[in-house]
Computed example of a mutant assay.
Amino acid sequence: MTTLDGRPVEILLVEDNEGDVRLTREALREGHFCNRLSVVGDGVHALDFLYRRPPYQEAPRPDLILLDLNLPRIDGREVLAEIKSDPSLRRIPVVVLTTSRAEEDLVRTYDLHANCFITKPVDFDQFIQVVKNIENFWFTIVVLPP
């Protein structure tokens, strides 16, 4: 399945843990949607990707961003704040996908207008299922802005 306009679903994963990147790729490969996953490993590259700064001049606009909080260089909270303060980016749904269980992170990310906060399961099968559920929810149930 593709988006309504027939193109693959564009997902930006902002994640510095290679194991979580591999698991996310696997889950999305098993999903129901034709998707193109772009991965960046820190907050600086995330913002460069979104603003199409070198080397990302040809980067697609994501339909969904999966954002870890604990990133090198610029953390996920700062990336989220930048995304949601920019009129050209703020409508892109941002799913915070993190190991944090801290209430202050939960509250802070919602204060910064995250679309949802999900704590990464440590179990392999549960992690795969969570990513599949994210994909299903955001591309089957939710109506996204153009």
Rank of each mutant, 00 (worst) to 15 (best):
M1D: 10
M1I: 02
T2G: 12
T3N: 15
G6Q: 05
R7H: 13
P8K: 01
E10N: 14
L12V: 00
D16N: 11
D16S: 06
E18R: 03
G19E: 13
D20A: 02
V21K: 06
V21P: 04
R22N: 05
A27G: 02
L28K: 09
L28F: 07
L28A: 11
R29W: 00
E30D: 15
G31Y: 06
H32S: 14
F33A: 04
F33R: 06
N35V: 01
R36A: 10
L37Q: 02
L37Y: 01
G41N: 15
G41W: 07
D42L: 02
D42V: 01
A46P: 01
D48Y: 14
F49V: 04
F49N: 07
L50S: 12
R53W: 08
R53Q: 15
Q57D: 12
Q57F: 09
Q57K: 15
E58W: 12
A59G: 12
P62K: 00
P62D: 00
D63H: 14
D63V: 02
D63K: 05
L64E: 03
L71V: 06
L71C: 09
L71I: 06
R73V: 10
D75Q: 03
D75K: 03
G76P: 02
G76N: 04
V79L: 08
A81W: 10
A81C: 11
D86W: 10
P87Y: 04
S88A: 15
S88F: 09
L89R: 11
L89P: 02
L89Q: 09
L89E: 01
R90P: 01
V94K: 12
R101Y: 13
A102I: 09
A102D: 13
E103L: 12
D105Y: 13
D105Q: 12
D105N: 13
L106R: 15
L106I: 14
V107E: 07
R108N: 05
Y110G: 00
Y110T: 01
Y110V: 02
L112D: 06
H113K: 13
H113G: 01
H113W: 13
N115S: 07
C116D: 12
C116Y: 06
I118V: 09
V122K: 15
D123S: 10
D123M: 10
D123I: 12
D123K: 12
V130D: 08
V131N: 05
V131D: 03
N133R: 14
E135S: 14
E135H: 02
N136W: 08
V143D: 14
L144N: 14
